[in-house]
Design a protein around this nucleic acid. Structure first.
Lengths: 334, 334
DNA sequence: CTGAAAGCGCTTACAG
DNA sequence: CTGAAAGCGCTTACAG
């Protein structure tokens, strides 16, 4: 039971592959193929259940109609949502998406980059570890469209779409202040990522602007986030007497809430908390957790837009663009 | 800046494409190519930064070295974990993975199936909607390796690996009984999936075997799961006076816990809960939630194993196998 | 309106 | 030890 090819159809209808190919690609009218023979070809293709070999087509056209998506981990809610959005949009545009996860390992990231390039993907969407500038530039220079999202390389001339981490953090602080909190703490990670640094800077500046003490900033080890976060929360509450905490990521908030509950602190009355980044359980928890939500769909759409522009202007007019989108507050009970 | 091809290397070293190809594929020794010329070719390939066009290779070899993974949604923790496992294992085996999500829509699933087939994937891993038997059989009969996981078509001769839903549900009931619960309730979904039906059957039988009332089974609408689940929990507690609840999925458990908290029930003392399926927050919550965990890695490994066996025995010896794996209890505080 | 032919960039059976 | 040539299944410029 061999797969049916263009050739077999051509033989069946006693016409050339050329004609069959044109008709099947919807270019029948363009080439003024007789409507009757078009109908014939179409019906035979259908009867034989013809499905073109995309590999062959791709080799011929030089486009694989596939995109690569590289993220740190797909189990992170945020990247999961991004992946889903990207997959949906891509499919509508006729592209397949290849998935790769780096687990924050630059070596793995590099491998993925090279494999996808060899695989002839038409474009790459990547939330980079920020430790692969060379390879990413090489790929971009080689004419393979690439757009960074979530993480970018500041100062570099590569297209990206990221969230406004600095202002996002400020918004969170402002929200706490507006709801009457006086002494605000922050729990963040020791990750060398622009996004992370920006959030911390946003917090510091917001606190300074409000003429408060900004010493309530705790940095925890990302390798040991759960325990360290518990400790940070304890210190903030017991030693610094904070009445509000900003968590730098959704999972830090998760850990923090658990510890606050264990401590038996009157929550959310005595202490308010907010999270940079949403999580499905935040609206399930009682009380619901106030969070800054990243506009996942907008990010996905814009990133793909940028990629498509590059793909269409191939091969060398690397029409670059860089975009910063604003996250929005989802005010809930905490 | 054109990509460098086999031909360019061949010209550079003044040898044939054949020789270059053989050496670059590590078959130099096999074909007794002179070690010196091998070294030469390798060095030139490296210098020119040669990366073979996989599309061309794939067309020639008839294998695309890519697998397709189809799941209902990638944002579901469980499928996220599965995807991550599969991606890791595949990469080790040299395969890329294409991702597709159905959102439980059989039409979307069918489209994905056809696209991936046209894309010449070497194999398909699918958690089906269970409404596409025809297409799946057609694909399998056409010689394209496929293995079902998580969801299967009972009675059909297709390879699959699923979890033991029936016994899993029984285990959960037994756990509650062993911890002294007398009146056990169940909250499940109105989904027409074998996995779901099996869990409900497991619950009923376990209750019967323990000579208890089995009328405490509530089925909620999956379209309106959150609200319906809240209502079900209220009824079970207020009207039926249950002191233990089995939730059919992790998200039902999430909804249920929220409602129990709101109701101010003394939890986990007055009422115990357990979840079929784990969730990252269950070990973060205070109290931690006892859950039945599905052996994600085992599922991923076995599924890929089955797929590889089919791929290697191509084209028609569809060495089929079917496997049921046991979930394990993760006993925590609830 | 339709077809013969070249080409996409590889692999591989065959020959020497 | 190495190469000429056919082939994978499409697309497309060119010709008529």
């Amino acid at each position: 039971m061999k797969r049916v090819s263009l050739d077999m159809i051509a033989k069946e209808v006693k016409l050339s592959k050329t004609t069959v190919s044109m008709v099947l690609n919807g270019k029948g009218d363009l080439h003024k193929i007789n409507p009757d023979t078009q109908a014939l070809i179409l019906s035979v293709a259908k009867r034989l259940n013809f499905r073109p070999n995309m590999i062959a087509r791709n080799l011929s056209t030089g486009s694989s109609m596939t995109l690569a998506l590289i993220v740190p981990r797909i189990t992170d809610t945020y990247y999961g949502l991004i992946a889903e959005s990207i997959e949906q949009i891509s499919l509508k545009l006729g592209y397949q998406v290849l998935l790769g996860t780096t687990h924050e390992d630059p070596v793995k990231e590099k491998e993925l980059l090279l494999t996808f390039e060899a695989q002839q993907v038409d474009g790459i969407l990547i939330a980079s570890t920020q430790h692969n500038l060379e390879d990413i530039k090489a790929i971009s220079n080689a004419g393979l469209p690439i757009v960074l999202f979530d993480r970018h390389y500041p100062g570099e001339d590569l297209p990206y779409v990221v969230v406004d981490n600095y202002n996002g953090a400020k918004k969170l602080v402002k929200h706490l202040i507006e709801t009457g909190r006086k002494n605000i703490g922050y729990v963040g990670l020791n990750l060398d990522l622009t996004a992370i640094k920006d959030r911390q800077r946003g917090f510091r500046n917001a606190i300074e602007e409000s003429k408060r003490d900004s010493q309530n900033l705790k940095i925890v080890d990302h390798q040991n986030a759960k325990l360290d976060c518990h400790k940070a929360v304890e210190e903030l509450i017991s030693d610094h007497g904070v009445d509000g905490i900003v968590f730098e990521t959704h999972y830090l908030a998760l850990y923090g809430i658990a510890r606050i509950r264990e401590m038996g602190v009157d929550y959310p009355d005595t202490i308010s908390i907010v999270s940079f980044g949403d999580h499905e359980v935040f609206s399930i928890f009682r009380p619901e957790v106030t969070a800054l939500v990243q506009p996942v769909e907008q990010i996905a759409e814009n990133a793909i837009d940028m990629l498509m522009k590059q793909i269409q202007n191939k091969p060398n007019s690397l029409l670059k663009s860089q975009e910063v989108v604003e996250p929005s507050m989802e005010i809930r009970n905490t």
